[in-house]
């Protein structure tokens, strides 16, 4: 008896699919049995187990990317009911049905919901989002970081390169070379570090090249969309201040 009542409740998904990076996208509807506390990933796993559309047609399993399942790795970003977010923390009970899943088209689509976030890692390389400490001899301990500074810098370090801010940004598109909010915030993070600060001008200079920080148009969608609540617009404005200072420093030859 209990089984029949559970089985009668279903969740409907409308999923945008794409077989190859260059092939046409199409949608398929899936109706899957409801289970309490489902998230979008567990629903996708259900479709993977039984890849049959709502019309009863057998299809290929929907492909997606995921890893940590606790919103710290950034792999399962997708557009859920119109908003880019992590599929693992998107609880079915809190979503309006039918639930629409789309890939984040700002990035090249590999297949179905899988995207290639390579440009984000390239951006981190471009701005040198690391602290160079390698030497030919032991450089000894670096300067200490004030606890008060460490606390706000920690917030910036929560960035998981998930790509949601780039998807939300109206200036990240194929006509624009804007680097995106994530890498700019990382410049602020590494420039805040007492050792990283020693190379701060190199990172700022990377933001003052074509496709750097100037691409920001202040729509501020990024800060509203970031799943980790990183103050991206504050980071951008702070880096605007630092790049402006560096600009005058270079001009005036200080």
């Amino acid at each position: 008896m209990a089984e029949s009542t559970v089985a009668s409740k279903t969740v409907t998904f409308i999923i945008t699919r794409q077989d190859k990076p260059d092939s046409e996208a199409y949608t398929e509807t899936f109706s899957i049995p409801y289970r309490p506390n489902m998230n979008v990933i567990s629903a996708l796993m259900e479709i993977q187990r039984n890849p049959v559309t709502a019309e009863g047609k057998k299809t290929t399993p929907v492909v997606w990317d995921s890893n940590c399942l606790e919103e710290v790795c950034g792999a399962c970003s997708m557009v859920i009911n119109g908003k880019p977010r992590q599929a693992c923390s998107a609880l079915v009970d809190q979503l309006e049905q039918p639930i629409r899943l789309q890939p984040m088209r700002t990035f090249p689509v590999v297949r179905d919901l899988v995207i290639n976030r390579e440009r984000m890692f390239a951006a981190l390389k471009k701005v040198k989002a690391w602290i160079p400490i390698d030497g030919t001899y032991d450089l000894g301990p670096g300067p200490r970081m004030a606890e008060s500074k460490r606390q706000w810098a920690y917030e910036l370090s929560k960035c998981m390169t998930c790509g949601v801010c780039l998807e939300a940004c109206p200036n990240v598109n194929d006509r624009n070379s804007f680097i995106g909010p994530a890498a700019i915030s990382q410049v602020r993070l590494f420039n805040a570090h007492p050792t990283g600060e020693m190379n701060q001008d190199e990172r700022l200079a990377a933001l003052m090249e074509d496709g750097g920080i100037e691409g920001c148009g202040n729509s501020q969608n990024c800060v509203r969309s970031c799943p980790k609540g990183i103050p991206l617009t504050t980071s951008i404005a702070a880096m605007n201040r630092d790049t402006t200072k560096l600009l005058f420093k270079k001009w005036l030859g200080v």
């Binding site: 109206p170 200036n171 598109n173 729509s219 501020q220 969608n221 509203r224 969309s225």
Partner: peptide, 21 residues
């Protein structure tokens, strides 16, 4: 600059995004 921008007001109906467009 305008040509380089997309408008995504359909998905992000925030005040600042309206101002952007």
């Amino acid at each position: 600059v305008a040509f380089q921008s997309n408008s995504n007001l359909g998905r992000f109906k925030y005040g600042r995004n309206w101002a952007f467009t």
